[in-house]
Amino acid sequence: MSAPALVAHAEERAARRTAWRRLWYRLRRNPSALAGSAIVLVVVALALLAPWVATHPQDAGNVVNFRARHLPPSAEHWFGTDQVGRDVFSRVVFGYRISLLLVVGVLGLSVPFGVVLGLLAGYLGGWVETLIMRVTDVFLAIPALVMALAITAALTPNLTNAMIALAVLWWTWHTRLVYGIVRSLRGEEYVEAARLLGARTAHVIFRELLPNCVSAISVKVTLDAGFVILIGAGLSFLGLGAQPPAPDLGTMVSTGSRYLPDMWWQSVFPGLAILFAILGFNLLGDGLRDLFDVEVA
């Protein structure tokens, strides 16, 4: 590399470093983002490291140990044991795996789909816009939980079908969000300049417009994660999500509630675990919203 090029390269690196430092500075001054990211990190770490964190990893599966059933919280069983003697703490830790799997599945399917539709509708306009946005309106009118109930009831109730049921409706929110942003950016001069230079529609959509939607999308995705966990737990509480003996938080609350109030730990701890995860994602989402200074409905 020539000398001036090296200088330019070093300056670029320095600029990138400054940008990171600025982000870290603003993050430090934003307690809710900080608390949220800490909680989310803990939840993700627990899920990833479940076999090592869990005190009784074998209890995640179909294990029965009637001698140890209905034990209250103790040093041996932090969150107590359930009706067949399985360690509740270990099952909660593995339960986060299922919750996060649902989040990744639902958002991984629906967000890219919704974002692309929003980009197309917002940029192309005309009949494409009318078609996409009217279909979106129709889907928006259906309550997510009702639709999910219908789909999982029609198909076999299991985790994959719960995922599909939620994804079928979830994309609409992202279509609406991205559509709104693109509509306001469509007339920006850099978009027109790109067109004058002969850029293809795909370039304008994915290289000029999409990068300007990323911060809003990431805020929305973070907030969505909490909702997906909640609705997922709701579905499995009703027996339409992951099936026993899989360690699902909603199922645990549901089964544990049969032994309330005496064996409160069987439902309260999984419930608190759901609360903790949702709180983390919501705090992080709110914090990111302030940090990026974006409007997300």
């Binding site: 001069e189 850099y190 990323v214």
Partner: peptide, 11 residues
């Protein structure tokens, strides 16, 4: 264009 603020893509 007229408006230097919007003639370059901020991203």
């Amino acid at each position: 264009f007229q408006n230097p603020g919007s003639s370059l893509n901020p991203r």
